[in-house]
Structure formats: C-alpha cells, structure tokens
C-alpha cells in the first residue's frame, strides 16, 4: 500500500452523515441543536450556541483554553464530540458567572490580575474550579510526595502542577496561582 493509496482511501471515506438532533444541558439550560456528528463540543458551544467564552487555542488538547466542566469535572471540549454529551451537565465560563455576578474564582482572577490578553482565562478559571474539587477529593498529583496518602495539601506547588494543562502565553502564572490560592482560602468554592 502506498501513500497515494492511503490518501485515496482517506478521500473515499465517509458519505456525508446526516446531522444529529441533540439536546445538551448547558449552564442549567437544555439547548436543542442539529450538529454534524463531527462537531466537537467546543465548536458546538462556540459556533452553534454562540457561547464563545470557551476558547479554541490549539484544537488538539495541548493548551487547555477550551476547558469546561462536565458533570463537575474539568475536560477539554476540543477533544470530545458534541453528540457524546447528551445527558451530561455541561458548565461553561458563562455559567459560572457574569460581569455583574462573578463566581468567586472569576473575582479572584480580576483582583489578582490573573490574565493579560484574557484568551486563556476562561479555560484557566474552569480548570481551577475543577481542580479544587479534585484536591478536595484527595486526588494525588505528580508533585504529591506520597500518593498513598489520602489527603492532599493545597500548596503552591500542587496548584501549579495541577494547572499545567492550561498554557498562558502572557505568562500570568504567578498571579493565577495567587488567585486560586486566594479563592480557595476564601472557602467560597
């Protein structure tokens, strides 16, 4: 089999699949939409539902800008299909708060200047909210000294290891860590 053969196979693939009518529970609202099965959850949010707070930075799971919460867990919306998430509870940055009623984590990011251009910010914030729940559940991380210990202390080292899947090219990292620490210490999460 040559490269041109596989190219031909690739090209020959796939009759156009009919659009799927799906219901997604987003930010406590049921939204109905018709999507191509190929539509990522990220593109469904941004291009179909016009919830563009969730950002596309790489589309390949390498930057974290598209992080949303699904059933309370942080995941990358670029690497999952919209059709796979009927019956799930999806929370996006828009659902966490709005400018007049910000979530404590959003307030902490503003107060600590945890961003500059703002493009990775929704992903950082959703990731931080999901991350704190993971710490609360006692999940270990790569910097946890003893993974067999059921409890994890929320040190700065733990925060930054656990947030490493969210790249900030403006490099607001120290301020983001401060925001998360402040938010967690505030106990409002």
């Amino acid at each position: 089999m040559s490269a041109s053969d596989t190219h031909a196979m690739r090209r020959g693939q796939g009759e156009m699949a009919p659009p799927s009518a799906i219901k997604l529970n987003i930010n406590d609202q049921v939204r109905q939409l018709e999507v191509d099965p190929r539509t990522s959850l990220l593109d469904a949010l941004r291009e179909h539902l016009r919830l563009s707070g969730t950002k596309k930075g790489c589309d390949h799971g390498q930057c974290g800008a598209c992080t949303v919460l699904i059933n309370g867990r942080r995941v990358l919306s670029c690497l999952t299909l919209a059709v796979m998430h009927e019956d799930d509870e999806i929370m996006t940055i828009e659902g966490l708060g709005d400018p007049d009623h910000m979530h404590p984590m959003q307030r902490a990011f503003v107060e600590c200047d945890g961003f500059q251009c703002g493009y990775c910010t929704p992903g950082q914030i959703c990731s931080a909210v999901g991350m704190l729940a993971e710490v609360k559940a006692g999940w270990p991380s790569h910097v946890t000294t003893d993974v067999s210990s059921p409890r994890v202390a929320l040190t700065d080292d733990e925060i930054r290891e656990r947030m490493s899947g969210n790249i900030c090219r403006c490099a607001a990292y120290p301020n983001i860590v401060a925001a998360i620490r402040g938010s967690a210490e505030g106990g409002a999460i």
Binding site: I93, D98, P99, R107
Partner: peptide
Amino acid sequence: NRVDGPLKATGR
C-alpha cells in the same frame, strides 16, 4: 484592577 477584567473573566 483591569477595567476589562470582568468581561475577560466571564468569557464575555
């Protein structure tokens, strides 16, 4: 604080 902070932090 950044005046555009709340817009950025809430995805708006």
